[in-house]
Amino acid sequence: MDDLQFGWVDTSIHSLLETQRAIVVSFAYALITSIDSAADLRRLPTGQMIVQRYPQCGFLGTGLVVPIDLLARIGKEFNLFNGFDEVWLFREEPRLLKPDDVILVAPLDLREDAISHELCDWVYESGCEVGLGDGIGLNYVTREDSVAAILECGKMELP
C-alpha cells in the first residue's frame, strides 16, 4: 500500500476525459465496472450494444473491457459517464475479475473514508494502474505519481 496514492478531487470521469485526456491515453485498456450505478454491464443494454458495435470490446465478468483509443468515443456515442461511474486503467488487457466488495464509486468519499485493503489488494493483483470512481466528485487510486500530481494540481473542476 506504500506506493499507492489515493484521494478525492472535485471533478468527474466525463470531465477528465475531456480536459485531461493525457492521463487516460497513456494506458492501453479501461475496465468499466459501473455506469450510472449499474454494476452488471453484461446485462445492461448499453453494454450489449457497445460489444456488438465494437468487437474490440468485451466483458470481464460483469465489467466491460474497452481499448483506450475507443473510451472517449464510446463515452460520447452512448452518453456515458454522467455520474456514479467506475473506470480502471491498465497497461495490459485486464484478466482478473473485480470483486463485488471493491468499490471506488460514491457513496465512498476518500476525503473522509478509508480505502479498503480489498481494493488495494485487487489493484496490485490485477495490474491496475489507475482507478476512478465518481458520483460526488472523483475518488481515485493510482500507482502513478504523475497521475496523482495532475489530479491534485488544482486545475481539475467540475464542468
Rank of each mutant, 00 (worst) to 15 (best):
L71I: 04
R143E: 11
V105H: 14
V130E: 10
L108E: 14
R143K: 14
E118L: 14
I32H: 04
P99I: 15
V25M: 05
Q48G: 11
H117G: 12
V87D: 10
L60I: 11
V147L: 01
V141R: 09
Q5I: 12
G58W: 02
I136F: 02
Y54P: 03
E144Q: 15
Y54W: 07
I150R: 05
K98H: 06
A38W: 04
A30P: 07
T11Y: 03
D69M: 10
S116K: 13
D69I: 14
L119I: 00
H14R: 09
V123T: 06
V66W: 06
R111L: 05
I32N: 13
D40F: 03
W8S: 02
S26H: 08
L17R: 00
F59A: 05
C153F: 05
A148T: 00
P67L: 07
G47I: 08
F6Q: 10
T46S: 12
I68K: 04
S126F: 13
A22H: 11
T142P: 05
M49G: 04
V24L: 03
M1R: 12
V9N: 01
H14W: 09
L97N: 13
P94I: 08
D40L: 00
V65I: 02
V24G: 05
L132C: 02
Y29R: 06
D40Y: 08
P55T: 02
F6H: 12
A149L: 00
A72N: 13
Q52T: 06
L4A: 13
L4H: 11
Q20Y: 05
N82F: 15
K98A: 07
E157V: 06
M1T: 13
V123K: 02
Y124P: 09
I32E: 11
R111Y: 07
F27A: 06
I23C: 06
V9C: 01
V102M: 08
I150K: 00
K155C: 02
L97H: 12
F6M: 06
G154W: 04
G137T: 09
E77P: 05
V147P: 03
V105L: 15
V65M: 01
C120M: 15
S126E: 14
T33V: 14
F84C: 13
P45W: 13
G7R: 00
P55Q: 07
K98Q: 04
A28Q: 03
D3M: 15
V25P: 03
D113E: 12
G47P: 12
V24E: 01
R143M: 12
P45Y: 11
T62P: 06
E144L: 15
